[in-house]
Write a protein that binds this DNA or RNA. Sequence first.
DNA 1: AACTACGTATAGGCTACCTATGGGTAGGAA
DNA 2: TTCCTACCCATAGGTAGCCTATACGTAGTT
Lengths: 108, 108
Amino acid sequence: MPKAELVPGTLILLVLRVLQSGPLHGYAIAQRIGQLSSDILQVEEGSLYPALQKMLLKGWVKAEWELSETKRRVRSYRLTAAGRKQLEAELANYDQVNRAIKSVLKLA
Amino acid sequence: MPKAELVPGTLILLVLRVLQSGPLHGYAIAQRIGQLSSDILQVEEGSLYPALQKMLLKGWVKAEWELSETKRRVRSYRLTAAGRKQLEAELANYDQVNRAIKSVLKLA
DNA sequence: AACTACGTATAGGCTACCTATGGGTAGGAA
DNA sequence: TTCCTACCCATAGGTAGCCTATACGTAGTT
């Protein structure tokens, strides 16, 4: 097992989820996902920023330029109502599919 | 939620797993995965056969032409030792990543 | 005669990710 | 002073892996 990656299709779900606790800027989102997963999940910048762009287009988040604690210009992302709805839907879908996969893997 | 799909990256794992119980032909593999998942997981033919080709190339399975119970020519796939090893590795990896995703989703 | 279930297989396209690259600031180490 | 690391945003280009559509063909039912 070379390295632990992301299960494709879960990136946006994870981002929506960490934003549920409050707005964060891009770099902090990646940090948080890494931290919460004991660094098993590593979100690359080249994956994250395009995903955030898509989420902006879809209206799931909105962005504002602010100053970070370290005095840098950061773009802060905040969940919208549509984003919360999307999160609920993706959460439910992930759970269902994951249960289904487990029941195949167990060969009940 | 339009339809329940496959979590990308799990198809080969699922196929390896159902073959662990014994050889099956392509059509039966798809049936079995559907059945075990209460039809939540639906493996399309255009996904399955290319995946089986890849598995043949990798040496994870070998194939033999046989006659099915319904008297049709079927190609029966059987796990190899390399396939069993691959299954173990993918199983462990899936478990680890899935745990990691869950700990992010729970926001422990 | 038409339709459904059974069966194998490929071409082409799309989505979503990764790698590589580019830009730039602040702070500490050498 | 220069280098390195951590902090930050962002895009271009490639690739993997799945889906849709299509093709071919048999057996049994309506």
